[in-house]
Design a protein around this nucleic acid. Structure first.
Lengths: 337, 337
DNA sequence: TTGAAAGCGCTAACAC
DNA sequence: GTGTTAGCGCTTTCAA
C-alpha cells in the first residue's frame, strides 16, 4: 500500500538511512543525493508512518486537551486557541471531554488513551484540592483553571480575584451600590466561583459597601439556564439590586434575559457585567461588559510550557512545578455605560 | 520506564503471547493464568504502547475531525457530538481547524498528520464542487455539509431545502408575507446558504407569495457580526418586512439584536426564525424559533459510517459512496408565536 | 557522506 | 492453552 522508507531507498538507489536523513532534514547529505531522494519521495508520494516513528522515538507529535465540554463556549474558544498554539509548535491536538465529572477526570489521567499523546493540557472542573495527588503523573502535564492550586504540576491560570475585583469596581464607579452576583457555588472555597466571589467582596470592602448574602445567586452549573433561574429566583424573592455581576458571560447573558423580561432597563435600571469575553458578548443587546481573562495567552502559555516539559524529559530530575498567572483586561460595553 | 509486555510476561512467568491474549481479552486463556497475568499487569501498571500496537495492526484508534473553527458554535456542538459518538466506538478524536480556507482544506486532505488517524470526518466550508476530486483519497473519509454533493466519498448531510421550506412555511402560517432572509451568499449555487435560500423560495412559491430580491440580505461569512450588519443595512435601506429568516441561528441572533435596537417588537412586529438549534437559542430574548437539523444524528451517522469503512478496508474493492440524509425538526419558540 | 543492522513494543502465524 | 518468533517502518549507533 503506502510507500515505506525502503521503497524510496530502492527507487533512489540509496540506503534507508540516507532517505531518513533527507526526510528529517539532516545537514550532511550531498545536494545531488538529496535531490534524487526527494524525487523518489515525490514520485511514490511517500509519507512517514507516524506509528513507526512514534514507536522508535517515543514521541507522537500529539498533545491531549481535556475539557469538560466543547458545547460550553468558553471551552470551545479555549480549544480553538490551544489548537492554534499547538500548530505553531508542529503539534496536533486530541480532545477528550470529561463532562466536568470528577471520576471521569481522575480516570482520564491514567487512561491508556493518553499513550497516544506526548503530554496533556488538562482543565478539570470536578476535581478539587484533595485530588491534587492524582496529578502526580509520569507524563508531561499542564493544568488549567482554578480547581487546584499548589499541585505537583505546572499550572496556568487567570487572575480571578483581581479581575473580579476590577469588574465589581467598575460597577461601583458607575454608582452602583446593591450589586447582585449570579453563579456562586454554595459553600465552595476553591474554583472560579469562589475566587471571583472573593474579588467581589474585596471590592465591596474597599468601597465601604456592605456584603449582603441576599444578593448572592447560587447555582449548580454554569450553563445559561442556571443564570436564568438564579436571576428569576432573586427577582421573585423581591431582592433589591441595581447591578448584576455574572460570574461568567453565559450566566450574565441568561440573567440579562430575565431582567429584560421583567422590564428592567439595562444599563439604566441595572448594570450588568460578565466574565470571559466570549465572542457573543459583543452582539447581545445591550452588548455585555465583561472581563477578558487572557484566554489566548493562557492557551499559548500552556502549550509552550507543555512543550518545554516534553522536550526536557531527559533531564535527570523533574523540575519544580511553576504557577503562571495571565493578565486580564476589562472590556466595557453597553451594559454598564 | 514504562512496563512492556515482556516485563509482564517475566513477572507472571508466562510468554508474551499469553499476556497479549489477556490484554486483548482472548477467550482461550485458563482462568488461573488470566488472574496471575492480570496481577502482574496491575502490579507493573502496564499500559499497552499505542504506537507499537498501531505499527503492528495498522490501526491507531484515532479518528480525525476537520472543521472550520471551534469558536463557531455550530462546529463546537458538532465536535462535542462527534467525540461522544466516537467514544461509543472506542475511538478518540483529533481535531483540525481549517479556518474555512479552501487551500488549507485541500492541503489537509493529504497532510502527513492524518497518518496518525484511521479515518477522517471532514466538514469543508471553502471547497466547492470543482474540488470534489480532491476527496478521492486512499483512507476512509466521510464528508459533512453542503459544499460537495455526489463526490467520490460517503456524505452525511441535512435536509437543507426541506428544513428551510418548513421554517418559511411556519412564518407564512403565522400570517407573514414580507419575509426577509439574512445570510445569503451572492451568486452562490452550492452550500448551505444556496440550499436554504431555495427552500425559502419554494415555500413562497407554494404560498403564492412573490420573491423580492430587496428582502435578501447578503453576507460574506456566517458570524454574528455579519447578521447584524446585513439586518442593519436592510433597515437603513427602508425595506419593509414582517419576518426574518436567519439562515443560521448566529445570524438570526445578530439580526434580532439590531431589530430590537430599532424598536421592532418580536414577534409582534417581526417574527424571527433561525437554523441550527444552538443551545443559546433557548435563552435569547425572545427565545429563538429554529430548525434542529439533526446534529446529533449527523455526528452518530458520520462516525458509524466511518467505522464501517475503517473495518471494511480489507474488502477487495471500494464500495460505492453513499449519501445519508438526516431528518430535521422544527423548534418553535417565542420569536414566532 | 553513506550503508548495514539492531531493535523500539506489539500482534499473529505457527508450533507444540 | 501456551510458547516461539518474524516483522510492522522507523531511527540510530557503528562502520566504512
Amino acid at each position: 500500500m503506502a510507500a515505506t522508507l525502503q521503497d524510496v531507498a530502492n527507487l533512489a538507489g540509496v540506503s534507508v538511512k540516507t532517505v531518513s536523513n533527507v526526510v528529517n532534514n539532516y545537514t550532511h547529505v550531498r545536494a545531488t543525493t538529496r535531490t534524487r531522494v526527494q524525487g523518489a519521495i515525490d514520485q511514490l508520494k511517500y509519507q512517514p508512518n507516524m506509528s513507526a516513528r512514534g514507536l522508535r522515538s517515543g514521541r507522537t507529535g500529539v498533545i491531549g486537551l481535556a475539557v469538560p465540554e466543547l458545547s460550553l463556549s468558553y471551552f470551545a474558544e479555549l480549544a480553538d486557541a490551544v489548537i492554534k498554539a499547538a500548530e505553531r509548535h508542529g503539534m496536533v491536538v486530541l480532545i477528550e471531554q470529561t463532562g466536568a465529572d470528577r471520576k471521569r477526570e481522575i480516570d482520564l489521567l491514567s487512561s491508556p488513551r493518553l499513550q497516544l499523546t506526548d503530554g496533556l493540557i488538562f482543565s478539570p472542573l470536578g476535581m478539587g484540592s484533595d485530588d491534587a495527588s492524582h496529578l502526580d503523573v509520569s507524563y508531561p502535564l499542564v493544568v488549567l483553571g482554578e480547581r487546584i492550586f499548589g499541585g505537583p504540576v505546572d499550572h496556568v491560570t487567570m487572575k480571578n480575584i483581581d479581575a473580579a475585583r476590577a469588574a465589581t469596581e467598575l460597577l461601583i464607579a458607575r454608582g452602583r451600590k446593591r450589586i447582585a452576583v449570579i453563579g456562586a457555588h454554595e459553600g465552595e472555597v476553591v474554583g472560579s466561583a469562589a475566587l471571583r466571589l472573593q474579588g467581589y467582596k474585596e471590592a465591596l470592602a474597599a468601597a465601604g459597601l456592605p456584603y449582603d448574602d441576599e444578593l448572592i445567586g447560587y447555582v449548580g452549573l454554569w450553563h445559561r439556564h442556571d443564570g436564568l433561574m438564579a436571576m428569576r429566583n432573586m427577582i421573585e424573592r423581591g431582592v433589591e439590586f441595581d447591578a448584576v455581576f455574572g460570574l461568567n458571560d453565559t450566566l450574565a447573558l441568561g440573567a440579562m434575559r430575565v431582567l429584560q423580561e421583567a422590564h428592567f432597563k439595562i444599563p439604566d435600571d441595572v448594570s450588568v457585567i460578565g466574565f470571559d469575553d466570549l465572542d457573543e458578548t459583543q452582539y447581545s443587546l445591550p452588548a455585555l461588559s465583561t472581563v477578558d481573562p487572557g484566554r489566548a495567552e493562557i492557551a499559548e502559555t500552556a502549550v509552550r510550557v507543555l512543550m518545554e516539559r516534553i522536550n526536557g524529559q531527559t533531564a535527570p530530575k523533574k523540575p519544580a512545578p511553576v504557577e503562571y498567572l495571565v493578565d486580564f483586561t476589562l472590556r466595557e460595553r453597553e451594559s454598564t455605560l
